[in-house]
Amino acid sequence: MKVFFAPAAPYALARAWTDGIWEDKARRVERMRRDSDKALALTAHRLLCYALKTVYGIVPRPQDFSLMARGKPYLAAEPDVHFSISHSGGMAMCAVHSEPVGADIEKVRPVGKGVPERVMSAAEYRLYMDAEDRQTLFFQIWTLKEAFIKYSGEGLGIPLKSFTVCPSGSGVDTDTGCAFWLMQPAAGYQAAVCAKGGAGPDILMVSEEQLARQLGR
């Protein structure tokens, strides 16, 4: 598994990164009101194209992408290529793997009252209440849960409290039967990936200049 991270590029640059973007995604980017949101979404898409080209030599066309029932994209003609993208704040993330994978990144910030109780299982909430740094632990648990949900392709269809993740670090989680890895790609960000197994992730930071280079066939 390889996990790529990139800071959001300025919109003046990212606005041209529409190669290979599938129709539904292009429509959603078009509807975004703020240039900063468009820039982040287009950076994440460009990072996916960069990862597919770098790892598999694939330069996808819009029609190569299909969407699962809950909107998770996949490459129909490449059953052994799996990916998951995420973005938050000013960072984009893309995990690619030979098996299904889920990735999530969040900018760490204070969360609203009642949120930890609402999303955590009883075991997770006990850990949270005992933690010295509750904010960090919250985002570790949250990104692990989101990574699992994205791995499953079910979105918020899976009740967040219905399963427990292990925030103590990387390893196979007995509740979900998946392997998880936590990472901090930059100060103030928490990220996690989830897969059925396989080797731990290679983590790669990608610059704006690397993304800007031609990714042609």
């Binding site: 969040e106 969360v111 609203g112 009252k113 009642g114 949120v115 609402r118 999303v119 949250w142 989101e146 949900i149 918020l156 967040l160």
Partner: peptide, 9 residues
């Protein structure tokens, strides 16, 4: 997803 949960709360 997190924003949505916060809003619902």
């Amino acid at each position: 997803s997190l924003d949505l949960v916060e809003l619902v709360c």
